[in-house]
């Protein structure tokens, strides 16, 4: 007997050979037939009995639980630097380095739309020759609103957002999820320096591409050890959520942490190597 999923998959293919198009519209009778629902229920019943085993709950790979389903990981690094830096992309006057909020999210995918969410937000901020990286991540879906509220609380009115492609990706995505979770936020009001465009202007044609990993390796000479490619982050979180493994989620934390550290390094690089920019 074919399962409901097989059945649905088969009907799909017929509806347009892979594409989910349907043949020309057709009329149909008054009463929806009760049968498909009953079939569905019958099939589901069989399924539910088979997969009764509860999902194991894994221990969070790092950090402390700061709200239900939300963990915080905090690391501090020595980072000796000038407390002010010139960012002519934003302002003519020097800017206090402590205002920079270098941030990056890890998300459930790249499909776009309100159904894609961030499960991890990393933020690097500098104070007195030290760089503090704070990362929030979800161990349950239900923690999302709390995570977003915590992140928003880190954004003081003087904050300047720094990202890589964040203007078109991370920020709109977070705004959507903030809206969805009824969290008022100041994301839209803060100045935002997205390095992608300045980097592109300077390095297009110089390196094979302008992805952050490439710029980091070629321009900043940073070498990552055992890095989990960003594309595997969604699967890593899912594996944790489904109780399969937390190993790769730990690697996502490392990857995300390096990303936000790189953003600060990149800010210095872009400022120092071309003081006349833009």
């Amino acid at each position: 007997m074919s399962t409901l999923n097989d059945r649905l998959a088969r009907l799909r293919v017929e509806a347009g050979a892979g594409a989910l198009s349907t043949p020309a519209p057709l009329l149909c009778a008054t009463t929806p037939t009760p049968r498909p629902r009953d079939t569905l229920r019958a099939l589901l019943h069989a399924r539910e009995q088979r997969r009764a085993a509860p999902r194991p709950v894994l221990a969070a790979p790092a950090g402390v639980e700061v709200a239900a389903g939300v963990y915080l990981v905090e690391r501090t690094f020595a980072y000796a630097a000038n407390p002010r830096l010139m960012l002519p992309w934003l302002a003519q006057a020097p800017i206090e380095r402590s205002r920079l909020v270098c941030f990056d999210t890890e998300t459930t995918g790249l499909a776009g739309g309100v159904g894609t969410r961030a499960f991890m937000i990393g933020v690097a901020r500098w104070r007195a020759d030290r760089l503090t990286v704070r990362q929030l991540y979800l161990t349950t879906m239900a923690g999302e609103a709390a995570m977003l509220r915590l992140f928003n609380a880190w954004l003081d009115p003087a904050a300047i957002l720094v990202s890589y492609n964040g203007k078109s990706y991370d920020a709109p995505l977070l705004k959507g999820r903030l809206r969805l979770n009824h969290v008022d936020h100041r994301l839209a009001e803060l100045p935002h320096l997205d390095w992608l465009h300045p980097v592109r202007r300077r390095y297009r044609g110089v390196f094979e591409n302008c992805r952050l990993a490439t710029i980091e390796r070629q321009a900043l000479r940073i070498v990552r050890d055992d890095d989990l490619p960003g594309a595997q982050a969604p699967a890593a979180w899912l594996a944790f959520l489904r109780g399969q493994s937390s190993r790769n989620l730990a690697r996502v934390l490392d990857h995300n942490r390096q990303d936000v550290v790189t953003l600060m390094r990149l800010s210095d690089h872009m400022t120092a190597s071309d003081p006349a920019a833009p």
């Binding site: 989910l20 198009s21 349907t22 519209p25 995918g109 499909a111 776009g112 739309g113 894609t116």
Partner: peptide
């Protein structure tokens, strides 16, 4: 939870793809 955009895969009529 999936990395997909389900509306993109559903056509309301026999057009497009």
């Amino acid at each position: 939870i999936a990395d997909s955009y389900p509306a993109g895969a559903v056509n309301l009529r026999a057009v497009a793809d």
